[in-house]
């Protein structure tokens, strides 16, 4: 009968014991967590009482980042993929862009299908890519005389319009990538190593696969479609990234990768992605 005998009565010691034990566990945990454990930060003298409590709560404003002098600021681009930038690109008017694009045909070809191997094809290019590259030419982040002068003559709105125009052109890079012509390329030994780099990367050297950002496995904003682009253009850009002649990739993305590629790998990758002349004509 002891079980129902005055569980709620004050003289029964057990409820009080349970509450006290619970409170003691909470209290000891708080004291250990806030006052003992986080006082001892590695490489630094133990923190004071309030410093330890703040640190334990995640408030580190007083410790904060080191305030040493920084080197001269170097930025790769003025573009950041914020929602306002994406909004500017989305607002592009392909109709207006088609008039601006008349200025591009002399080099980039009719409708963006470049006939010169050193000038990129723009047909079906991702609009974010064209928009960013035009701004980088405008700001001199991607130094190239001719394009710098042309881009300076275009407003941000014009860039978005011309980007929308080329993105909407049919039978271009996007269509080639969609057809999966990548896998149907030549079967030489060289292109097998390139295929492995493109689809698997090289995990031994810490090189991610091209397809993780340039498609079709994954897409990263600002990464252009590669299939169907001129091989000579791709190879030249890889070399420029590796030699840091071109530095307009955000967070050194392409510089970090291209630096680890050998010249022969760059050549093989460019040949792998670059469409042979015949297939490009067929795709026209």
């Amino acid at each position: 009968m002891a079980r129902d005998k005055g569980v709620l009565r004050l003289t029964n010691p057990w409820p009080r014991f349970a509450w006290l034990a619970g409170a003691a566990i909470v209290g000891i945990s708080l004291a250990l967590g806030f006052l003992v454990l986080d006082r001892y930060q590695q490489n630094d003298p133990p923190l004071g009482l309030w410093g330890a409590i703040c640190w334990g709560l995640g408030i580190t404003a007083d410790l904060g980042p080191a305030r040493e002098a920084a080197p001269t600021l170097r930025t790769p681009s003025r573009i950041a993929w914020t929602s306002s930038t994406l909004g500017q690109i989305r607002a592009g008017d392909a109709q207006h862009g088609s008039f601006i694009a008349l200025n591009c045909t002399a080099c980039h070809g009719e409708g963006g299908m470049s006939q010169s191997t050193f000038i990129p094809t723009l047909t079906g290019m991702d609009p974010a890519v064209i928009f960013k590259q035009l701004d980088d030419y405008r700001s001199g982040k991607r130094p190239w005389g001719v394009m710098g002068a042309i881009a300076k003559a275009l407003s941000i709105r014009d860039s978005a319009d011309v980007a929308a125009y080329y993105a909407a052109r049919p039978n271009g890079l996007a269509a080639i990538a969609h057809e999966g012509s990548l896998r149907g390329e030549s079967r030489s030994k060289e292109s097998d190593s390139a295929r492995h780099l493109a689809f698997m990367g090289d995990e031994q050297r810490g090189i991610p696969p091209c397809t993780a950002c340039h498609g079709p496995h994954g897409y990263k904003i600002g990464a252009p479609p590669l299939a169907g682009q001129h091989a000579a253009y791709i190879e030249r850009q890889l070399a420029a990234f590796a030699q840091r002649l071109r530095q307009n990739d955000i967070n050194e993305q392409m510089r970090t990768i291209a630096m680890q590629l050998t010249p022969s790998e760059m050549h093989a990758l460019a040949a792998f992605y670059g469409a042979p002349e015949s297939s490009r004509v067929a795709n026209k």
């Binding site: 995640g58 408030i59 580190t60 001269t72 681009s77 950041a80």
Partner: peptide
């Protein structure tokens, strides 16, 4: 230590300046 550092930073604009600019 559990990583208890709560410093906030805008991930889209790291490259435009501040602590994580490429020159730093």
């Amino acid at each position: 230590h559990p990583p208890s550092n709560v410093e906030i930073i805008d991930p889209t604009t790291l490259h435009l300046g501040g602590e994580f600019a490429e020159s730093n």
